[in-house]
Design a binder for these strands. Sequence first.
RNA 1: UGGGCUGUCGCCAAGUGGUUAAGGCAUCGGACUUUGACUCCGACAUCGAUGGUUCGAAUCCAUCCAGCCCAGCCA
Length: 535
Amino acid sequence: MEHSNFIRTIIEDDLKTGKHDHIVTRFPPEPNGFLHLGHARSIIMNYTLAKDFGGTFNLRFDDTNPVKEDATFIDAIQKDIEWLGCPWDALYFASDYFETMYEKACLLIQKGKAYVDDQPAELIKATRGDLKTPGQNSPYRDRSVEENLSLFEAMRSGEFKDGEKVLRAKVDMASPNMNMRDPVIYRIQHAHHHRTKDDWCIYPMYDFAHPLEDAIEGITHSLCTLEFEDHRPIYDWVVRECEMESTPRQIEFGKLKMANEISGKRFINALVNDGTVDDYSDPRLVTLSGLRQKGVPVAAIHRFIHSLGLPKSEGETSLQMLEEEIRSELSSSPRIHLVKDPLLVTITNYPSDGELLTHAADAEETIMREIPFSNQVYIERDDFVLEKPNKKWKRLALGIEVRLMHAYFIKAESVVTDESGQIVEIKATYDVQTKSGSDFNERKPNGNIHFVDAKRGIPITYTEYEPLLVENADRSQSLESILNPDSIKTYQAVVEPAALTLPGPYFQAIRSSYVMRDSERAFHRVVALRSSFKG
RNA sequence: UGGGCUGUCGCCAAGUGGUUAAGGCAUCGGACUUUGACUCCGACAUCGAUGGUUCGAAUCCAUCCAGCCCAGCCA
């Protein structure tokens, strides 16, 4: 269900009052990392907010820092956004605006609103003051326009080394808002840029670049996260002082944080380095590529994001909410029998070589499949105990009769154990008149369990992904102490033959999980079925 | 402690002076069931605290408390 949200209200208002007649939003990633669920909120919200009002949605790479960015992320990010189903109307690069930004910086200088500072970084830091004490003006703050202009030009033409000079906005060194204390707006970096190559050796800082990028593109509502609230005054200052025609409005919303998940770049890097995960696409991560790998349907992500709305508060959302959307998205998948931890059952009184039972894989009975059955079948090891423990136990036990779904009632008579005492086989008997569909109702089985024919079942590897972190992990502890050592479980499982031929890739493994077929011999769990079974 | 924010059920989250304080997740009952699934019923908060304004406040005011963000030539 879609929540109303304050940004939607603002947009509706702006349309109503005529402030805007066309909405333009954007998603402005820096190409320096992979997208995760948190970004999905921004992407989906920017996208829907624009589309719901017939507006435009841009993708803009905020590539203003060549030393931290890499072209390899450009493709990956685009792929993720495409996968998310949020096609952009236009693709831009902040670096395409470098010339305009340079001109705007010159304009600031001409207006006496920016100056070249010769102080080294440490001195700038030292004179910025702190949270409680105002900063001190730079001795270079009152250079003449001419001197600033020629110095800035010299910066551009490469006459200085990295860090030798910066261009600063002249705002207010005594502002209680640190962002207003003459922020650096251009720094010297003799670095190769992935798009502009070696054309530039000065690069604009975020506080200067971002508002200009928005204004240049005619962004009407510039959405960002809460930590930029403090930057809004400088954002507005830049748009105003640079005399931009278009005046975008920055609006901040709360970040989406998932409880007990890892999405921080540093954390993920640590996991990659220690070999816990292969890369950012690991299905156990909430990166978009990880979720894609895991088989999470995009529609589930959209519904999840919309169900959360766009609040200003920041909490930790439980993954269960996403999982519930995944289940509901996958609910109509064809059903199959998958036994992940097989235990052999020999039906001692079953006479023939076997038979084929027919049963629908879906509720509408439009997808029929044949289920082989014979005197040897596999059931889930968990579905058997020697002695029925209590009334609630709805599975197999010695002397207890259950229905093998779509087949017959069987009763466990005895077990065969190996030298270590482990049960390796159950001897059972079946009752021919209890055949599924026969309307037999003289007695009720103790439960219904699934099975796979031992001879014609298909051996597969079945993988289950568990959380990477232990429950209620204390983030202040070392990573290795809070890592779940068993976050990936692989089983030598068996599925009914139809699981290979039915339309996929999603199935509901009855009584277990929604699974995805990766290949003829490999399946993995997307999400577990809900279960009220205790114990 | 300067500035900027946030605080509604275990977790999300509506609500903007008059509602029995939505809904989802989770939990607990129960019905149904050839999936302990699905579905369906039912249970589950007085709104961070304290004062005040008002006939009436989660919604307005004051004070206090708690949490988050800001001192990169990162974004």
